[in-house]
Design a protein around this nucleic acid. Sequence first.
DNA 1: ACATGATAGATGATGTGTCAAGGACCAGGT
DNA 2: ACCTGGTCCTTGACACATCATCTATCATGT
Lengths: 155, 155
Amino acid sequence: MNDETQWLSPREQRSWRAFIRLNQKLTARLGSELQSNAKLSGPDFAILVALTDEPAGRLRFQELAKAIEFEQSRLSHQIGRMIKRGLVAREECAEDGRGAFVTITAQGRETIEAAAPKHVAAVRRLVLDAVSPEEFDTLGDLAERIIKHLDETAP
Amino acid sequence: MNDETQWLSPREQRSWRAFIRLNQKLTARLGSELQSNAKLSGPDFAILVALTDEPAGRLRFQELAKAIEFEQSRLSHQIGRMIKRGLVAREECAEDGRGAFVTITAQGRETIEAAAPKHVAAVRRLVLDAVSPEEFDTLGDLAERIIKHLDETAP
DNA sequence: ACATGATAGATGATGTGTCAAGGACCAGGT
DNA sequence: ACCTGGTCCTTGACACATCATCTATCATGT
């Protein structure tokens, strides 16, 4: 094996490790707050938000999958579990016999409406409070740039 | 329910969503590259790196858990699976009858040594190539600040 | 009408993460 | 010697993620 690997410099490594660590910690913290405040997981929350963003409160599987960037299969499993808990329902699609809609239920709405304020508060408390508005903008800019780069380098 | 929630401004929301999305995409991409290049998951990789950082190639469960910030139980399950695959081994601890060491095996070393260069290359290609060195420093600074804040606000 | 390939979604197997409960051992006081 | 409480690690149950595979339906060309 050729050993001309461009290892990370100490500086790069420090930034990289901080970034990775932050992701892990943040996901864990927000997830556990959501869980104890509202009995929702991160994926549950993302799905309910996407559905309430729709006037009709429903979406085709495909569109929902695209909106939150879940793979088909992952979404299918996730929706299956959420149906069991009464948060969403599955509806036949008249125009396309293969397709199906996911609809938010009344209970799903109650749950998300109760959860959202606490979640936003947690985001403010855990993240926004740690940096200035300008810095947060910078973070957003960098994130968008890297995402764009990732999508261009797509597999 | 009092409705004085400080919702995110459009600007804040844009940054927040980009940040979250980036985390998800990046974890997914790096995980899948690791998986196809080396048959390792992110957690596998983190553990092998932590063990090779030790001269002895071994650590107590506690210390390993602290080093990579895994909960005890999570680590225990993870190590169990890795033992099955021959990447690490469990060793009794003479000084403390309750404790145990995790040791990297020869096979574990081979695996990580083959995986690391490709992983670093992926990090460069997917992330470092998208931003300037100064920007990456900034990212690191912000990440460290938020982590510090998270730890101070610890549960 | 009918083949053919593409698309929508479901399903089972396996690996991963979290929580709650448990078993083994240690340390300190009595 | 014996509690008692804490520490170290394991275990089982369940939610989640990914992969490969499957079925049903659609859309097109003949």
